[in-house]
């Protein structure tokens, strides 16, 4: 059987949904951020697969930029968690309910 880009696409899709479930289910803020990174990575895989499908380089290029943005975003997110930790003294998402009615 010949390798075809859609196989890569399905791997990316599956990884995306694993990450989505993880965001919903886990309660540790850091793990939630890790699952977000997982989702971004899955998006990257899909881009690369598309690039292979259309025999183009646009997908690869986008994947590079997404990676950069993901790095910046995770840095800022972790900074937020550190700042939050100072108030909450914990990283449980349950404790982060200051907006409650």
């Amino acid at each position: 059987m010949q390798f075809h880009p859609w196989m890569l696409l399905s791997v990316g899709t599956a990884m995306f949904f694993i990450g989505l479930i993880g965001v919903v289910v886990r309660r540790n803020l850091l793990v939630i951020l890790m699952c977000i990174e997982l989702m971004l990575n899955a998006g990257n895989i899909c881009f690369v697969a598309f690039s292979r499908m259309h025999q183009n380089l646009n997908g690869d290029l986008v994947a590079v930029f997404v990676m950069t943005v993901a790095a910046a975003e995770s840095a800022v997110g972790l900074g937020l968690i550190i700042a939050l930790y100072r108030t909450l003294k914990t990283v449980e998402s349950e404790k982060l309910q200051l907006l409650r009615d």
Binding site: L20, I21, V23, V24, R27, L29, I32, S93, E94, L96, Q97, L98, L99, R100, D101
Partner: peptide, 12 residues
Amino acid sequence: SGSLQSYSLIFA
């Protein structure tokens, strides 16, 4: 509710 969990569930 203010709970991150339920918010992300709604997103999903």
